[in-house]
Design a protein around this nucleic acid. Structure first.
Lengths: 195, 195
DNA sequence: CTAAAAAACTAACGTTCGTTAGCTTTTGTG
DNA sequence: CACAAAAGCTAACGAACGTTAGTTTTTTAG
């Protein structure tokens, strides 16, 4: 019988998804291809029918997530809204990505340092660019008196990293919805920013 | 007699300090004993004159940091001060530890998952206990109307993880002092908490 | 149904890993 | 100075690692 009805999820995607879970659990350096193979239900060597190397998996995870951030911040910059709403949109973006794809976000946060050159340098540049654009929004918000004067880097990094805990804590069974989570975190962080 | 706890910095301490830097840089699983030996200026096998295993180094780092947190929160609980000041004291504790021993704190945050059982379970219990005590302070602060009503877990984890970025960013050469850093972060987070 | 393409398997490669054994050198103490 | 303890060295072990080669099975397409 036909095993695929429509657009099927490729085995490659299954491998990368499972790898994200594994890397999150054990850390990239401590996770082996044989661990991964077992989870996928296949011999270790068979994985190489779908991917070129272990490094390639990490690259794919990190750059997909980085791409999500970068593509969304462009939209946010272009919106005709207050800086408060722009920052709110960034916070919501980070929470949504974390909730929707916790494993990949966690791996990107924790294991990007294991990217091999030259991908490591490219990733760092991407991240630095994203941070610079976020910082600029905060800076302009301060200039327009929407936010209180403060060290822009401190504000930005505090906001960015304050969302990381969600990875360790959130799971859909908890009696708090994504919406409530967003509301509470956004409120907590925005009050601190406001003038 | 062993010159362990006397005046001089033992080689064992040097090894563990260097290991913290190495583990922070590459991640525990990706760092090898030969990497570590090279940094210490010794052959890999010689390290085993001072420590029992690679795992033991990770344990020592994680439990020393965990101990710092636990011992300080007892003092903070006992102080006769407002809940605002208690939370402020916890934030300052986290910032100070991060600035004073960035590498060990980073390793504890990133690599505790690699602790071997039964140490892993013990560590988790320690951390859960610490979090429960911190949460209780926030809860009481809300009850006493010092803080606005909100989800206690969300507030606690947001505060706890918001300080982690300092590891990636802070270095003594930056033109911001630890005091300024403390002031800005504390202000940002406390305003969000306040009623 | 057939044949090619894709994906799985077994086996093994060369490396690197954490660690041990056994010997030599350095250091601290009386 | 004597000499034991501490700390270093070289060599090597077995295990695990990422990965490749070669073969067989499964899936896909005409």
């Amino acid at each position: 019988m036909a095993s695929n009805s429509k657009k099927k999820v490729s085995k490659r995607d299954v491998i990368i998804k499972e790898a994200a879970l594994l890397f999150k659990e054990k850390g990239y350096g401590s996770a082996s291809m044989r661990d991964l193979a077992e989870r996928v239900g296949v011999e270790a060597a068979s994985i190489y029918s779908h991917i070129k190397s272990k490094d390639e998996i990490l690259e794919e995870i990190c750059f997909r997530i980085a791409g999500e951030y970068v593509s969304h911040i462009s939209k946010i910059e272009d919106e005709k809204s207050s800086y408060t709403d722009k920052v709110k949109a960034i916070i919501n973006l980070h929470i949504r990505l974390m909730v929707e794809d916790a494993a990949s976000v966690a791996v990107t946060n924790n294991d990007w340092k294991s990217l091999p050159e030259p991908k490591l340098s490219i990733f760092k540049t991407l991240r630095k660019g994203y941070e610079a654009r976020f910082a600029k929004l905060i800076e302009e918000g301060i200039a327009k008196k929407e936010f209180a004067p403060m060290n822009v880097s401190v504000a930005m990094f505090t906001i960015l990293s304050s969302i990381r805990w969600v990875e360790l804590w959130y799971n859909p069974d908890r009696n708090i919805t994504e919406k409530e989570l967003e509301k509470d975190i956004t409120n907590l962080l925005l009050k601190g920013l406001k003038k």
